[in-house]
Amino acid sequence: MRILSFLLFISSFSFAQSQNSANLLIDRAPCTFEMTVEQLTSKKLNFKCEELFGNDSFGIENFRIKFRGKASIPVEGNTLNADSNILAKKLKAGDYVTIFHVENLIVDGNKSQEYKTLHIKIIEP
């Protein structure tokens, strides 16, 4: 009986985890953005993806950034702060960064809240 209860607990936990992962993907941008470290640490972050906004570039405001193995860092505005800038400069080609809880996407001066999560792949150090 204990084994059966344990198996039911594990299966319900696994289902809950998959539901949480699915919810994160709902508001995730449909592409992985490829950027250089220089582009990521530039004065103003700009993104472009064929599937989004008629291929217009867009900016972001107020977000959290996550580097592998580090705690997420809150960022106000549209440029990396000192803490995230230091970590970004240590990135190598092939590393991934996640920007999430994006408060606003800015397209042609208009604010949108369509996507909350952006995945970035570093293509050059």
Rank of each mutant, 00 (worst) to 15 (best):
I65H: 00
E103V: 09
E114T: 15
R28M: 14
L87H: 08
F9N: 06
T79D: 01
N62A: 12
D83K: 11
S72L: 11
K48N: 15
N55Y: 10
S5Q: 14
D56G: 01
L105Y: 00
N20H: 06
E114V: 14
F100D: 10
S42V: 02
T79I: 05
Y115N: 04
N81P: 10
A88M: 11
I106A: 00
K66C: 09
K70R: 14
T32Y: 00
H101Y: 02
N20P: 00
S11F: 07
C49R: 03
K66T: 07
N81R: 06
I26Y: 01
P125L: 11
I65Y: 00
K121D: 05
R68E: 14
V75Y: 01
N104Y: 10
Q19A: 07
L45P: 04
N78M: 08
T79E: 07
T117H: 06
S21M: 11
K116I: 11
N62S: 13
R28K: 14
A88K: 02
N23S: 09
I122R: 01
P74L: 05
P125S: 15
I10M: 12
I106P: 01
F100T: 04
Y115P: 06
Q19V: 15
L40A: 09
Q19S: 01
E103M: 10
I99K: 00
G59N: 08
R64H: 10
T32F: 00
V97Y: 01
P30V: 14
K121E: 13
G59K: 05
S14I: 15
L24N: 08
V37H: 03
N23R: 14
F47V: 10
H101W: 00
I120C: 06
S84I: 08
A22G: 00
H119M: 13
G94T: 13
A93R: 11
A82K: 13
A22K: 04
N104G: 03
R2M: 14
I3H: 01
E114K: 14
S72R: 03
V37G: 03
M35Y: 06
Q39C: 07
G94V: 13
D56C: 06
